[in-house]
Design a protein around this nucleic acid. Sequence first.
DNA 1: TCAACATATGAACATATCTTCATGTGTTCA
DNA 2: TGAACACATGAAGATATGTTCATATGTTGA
Lengths: 105, 105
Amino acid sequence: MENEEKVTTPEMPDIDVLFELADLFKVFGDSTRLRIMYTISENEMSVLNIAEALNMEQSTISHQLRVLRQNKLVRVRREGKQIYYSLDDDHVKRIIEMGLDHVLE
Amino acid sequence: MENEEKVTTPEMPDIDVLFELADLFKVFGDSTRLRIMYTISENEMSVLNIAEALNMEQSTISHQLRVLRQNKLVRVRREGKQIYYSLDDDHVKRIIEMGLDHVLE
DNA sequence: TCAACATATGAACATATCTTCATGTGTTCA
DNA sequence: TGAACACATGAAGATATGTTCATATGTTGA
């Protein structure tokens, strides 16, 4: 059952889990995406509204929202022509808060 | 006191704080660095030992340890020829655990 | 059905990032 | 002092990532 050649700490997750984890943090590692997440953290918002709030191109926001979607960090709701985005759960907020704690000493 | 033109959520941190935050998460967003952090999470380890544990080049590990150092995520201790690295605090572990929670559903 | 609007997406470019190789710096001990 | 060892670092190349522009898709209302 044991693999004695492996020199790793006991609780090191599988390598592929670590890749997933890295991918997740990568998503948080971009200021545009962080700003989007903050912007929709309280209320859902349409793509255009997010773009206006951040003063960025609609296309840029759409591309980044796709990344957030693919990583299940946002919820999507269509209403007529617009699509409203909101944070998927408080989990996301907590990850950000955790990071903020570190940044703000 | 209020700036009515700004269309942001109330608690959006300053833009430069968000850049710092993104930079922090960027550090976590690489599987090599995550593996290093895991490797030294229980006990401090020398650079060579980390490289052996992960089966990677010493140079690669050194480069990434520098990134971790610059972001104050590791502690450094010299003992003779070797330099021992360990995680800076439990804060770091908690950020990783938080991410793992999300990845593991 | 068609124009107007909201959003998504592909291609292209610029920039950032990671790894490797070669070499530099610092430490020990004979 | 000078090998031998441990670690750090600069340069270079390959790859990944973010933004923009142009355009496609999907929805509404006349």
